[in-house]
Design a protein around this nucleic acid. Structure first.
Lengths: 243, 243
DNA sequence: CGCGGCCATGTTGCATGCAATGGGGCTCTC
DNA sequence: GAGAGCCCCATTGCATGCAACATGGCCGCG
């Protein structure tokens, strides 16, 4: 992954602008304005746009060029379900292969951090950040430990989509007490999942991982139905599909 | 998908050269020779190389540029296992949502075509082609009918890898009688899978789809162990990994 | 007044030019 | 003779130029 290079910079910046809503769904990605805005020539922009298409964040526009992909609610929901299936596979593989001493330590560290973040009844900004980081680390540890590179790639690909990431919904939902309840429940699932992994219960681990993702799907619908879609409107089209 | 355009042509041609072994694992993908060979400038070549990287067929080379990705046996095996998990999800979704009349027709047509191709004891070239086409159609029908676009994308991505495709192993394995036995068994699994789909048995359908992929994994190992790796040596490195 | 065709313009897609970087080979020295 | 340093060159990555295409507006015509 070239951290230097204009094309990489363009890709990162474009991703950021899409995720933050500065570029909204359907917006045309014209090369010249982007090149000027990013202070580079059109060539690296073109490369970044092509990569963005591979990532699924941009779609070819009629008559050439690209536009920001419009995601339907259905599609985001489907993506989370897919993530559940993939993480379920990862969990099953880990359980079947056995949990190494190092992995066990990583998992329990994450669980402890989550417990600590949730220990106080309220979740301030700092606790939310800590929980989010813990969540990312836990899921990443399991995905890695599965030892299946194509699987890891597939998980990374689906996490590149907006709101499909494991910790995408952490900061958002509802009131503070409700949020605490939701995260507490999710973290209980984490505990059960680790328990299943260490007990070598592959099928149970897979089922728990799926249920964990389904939980995220429910929370997502909660957010959308509650009209709490702050930045979401930029990315999700509430009417019908734009493939 | 732009069917016209030099970049698209370059991408297709490069994919073909990698799959046919004309470009071997580890080969450096230098722009100028490729541009000359394909009769175009370096610009569309660069675009195609970037896309090839997204597809996982090329990796960035140290010091810039790209090289043909080297696949380990392990990685191909993992990719097929992943395909099984994904097709298992598709099968489960289809079973849960119910099989439409049109889908049922497509499925049974495929089953009949497979039966016909296998009816004669021997498998000539034509019968193999027919079986392969049937196989592709059957798997594609189920993947589509699942109605989960991110899932379809994921399946397409994993099928883009060499030997991970559903029908990649059809023409290859072993002697003619052995091949007939293997395909007959695989097709019996097709029958059972369709039965499960139409009976709404989601869990069974998922298990069958996974088992079907595991069957492909066994056949793959059979080929590799039997030294029948004709064009495979160009793509698979039998020593250790090159990420 | 409405519609069709034409032109102008903006944009894309490709080709080419140019500087920077990294590697290989040669030579000089010890 | 072996090793180290230097120079040349090939290759990449980016910038820019150019032609083709599609789009939108305007004018002329019905």
């Amino acid at each position: 992954m070239p951290l230097t290079g204009q094309a990489a910079r363009a890709l990162i910046e474009l991703r950021a602008r899409i995720f933050t809503g500065r570029l909204r769904a359907g917006d045309r990605l014209a090369e010249i304005p982007l090149a000027e805005a990013l202070g580079m020539s059109r060539t690296p922009i073109r490369l970044a746009l092509s990569a963005l298409q591979s990532e699924g964040l941009a779609v070819p526009a009629p008559g050439g060029g690209f536009a920001v992909r419009a995601f339907t609610v259905r599609e985001v929901d489907d993506a989370v379900a897919l993530r559940g299936q993939l993480e379920g596979m990862a969990a099953r593989l880990v359980a079947e292969h056995g949990v190494s001493r190092g992995l066990s330590r990583r998992l329990h560290e994450a669980l402890d951090q989550g417990d600590a973040a949730l220990a106080r009844g309220v979740l301030d900004e700092e606790a939310l950040d800590a929980y989010g980081a813990m969540n990312t680390a836990l899921h990443a540890a399991i995905a890695e430990a599965a030892g299946n590179a194509p699987l890891s790639r597939a998980i990374a690909a689906v996490e590149a989509l907006p709101f499909a990431s494991a910790s995408a919904l952490v900061p958002s939902p509802g009131s503070a007490p409700q949020r605490h309840r939701l995260l507490t429940f999710a973290h209980q699932q984490h505990h059960l999942l680790v328990e299943a992994l260490e007990a070598g219960q592959g099928t149970r681990a897979e089922a728990l991982a799926r249920e964990h993702a389904d939980n995220a799907r429910r929370n997502l619908r909660l957010i959308l139905d509650s009209g709490e879609a702050e930045g979401l409107a930029a990315l999700i089209t509430f009417s019908d599909a734009v493939a």
